[in-house]
Design a protein around this nucleic acid. Structure first.
Lengths: 122, 122
DNA sequence: AAAAAAGGTTTACACACGTAAACAATATGG
DNA sequence: CCATATTGTTTACGTGTGTAAACCTTTTTT
């Protein structure tokens, strides 16, 4: 089952810190996204149905916790894109951004460091 | 307007070589995707409506040509993912794959070459 | 000429998504 | 106790998507 973009906004909030109450999530996410209360409620329910989060009762309310990890989600999404557009390989993706001049100084520095690390690991 | 995943299969075919007839596209794409004729026809029409392709009459049939370039499409998609998941920066994405041990020897070699090139450009 | 094939155009239908209101149950303040 | 607020559950509705059949014209075949 897939997490939609709207749903992922809720997930981001939960990944940032869980468990959280619906109230918290609402306060955090709704203004930024321009959503009404009902929207957040619906998304929480869809996420529950998809087993991407769980809810434990805490008195009269629920505490929501992610079941799907951000790592896993990011992996899925990234792999999907890579496979669809770059033959499943990372270098062509970086080359693409390089061609588009979308590599910042910082990116370049970090990539250098990364490659060095990979060296060290032997 | 966005190109859906199914639609992008048609686009890939056209990016590979255009213009093409519907027949060509059908022969190329349908078996691979397990699609019926009607499916391909529908997708062509949706792409026309979205102005992602154009059709010029050639006798009794049409020749289809992309209007949206692969470059542009790839850029949009990649930027979307990067923004949503990696704060819009490339290095964290590469780091992610690195952590997951998803960098092949070839990737690493290519990334090295790329970074050297960037050096040379000064 | 009637039938069939080829090719394009329209319509269909179920399901996901974005968005949200309506409703229900329960707790709380007056 | 009753009205109100809180919180969760159900229902809704327009649009996009995946998938495809139905239909209409124009050629080709028999």
């Amino acid at each position: 089952m897939t997490i939609s973009e709207a749903e992922s906004a809720i997930m981001e909030c939960l990944w940032q810190g869980a468990p959280r109450t619906a109230e918290d999530i609402l306060a955090e996410v709704a203004p930024r996204q321009g959503w009404q209360e009902g929207t957040v409620k619906s998304l929480l329910n869809r996420l529950l149905k998809k087993k991407a989060i769980k809810a434990e009762r805490d008195g009269r309310r629920y505490l929501y916790t992610p079941l799907l990890s951000r790592e896993k989600y990011v992996s899925q999404e990234s792999k999907g894109l890579l496979d669809r557009l770059f033959g499943g390989r990372v270098a062509p993706l970086v080359a693409h951004f390089s061609e588009q001049r979308k590599l910042s100084k910082k990116d370049i520095a970090e990539l250098r460091r990364l490659l060095e690390e990979l060296d060290d690991e032997h």
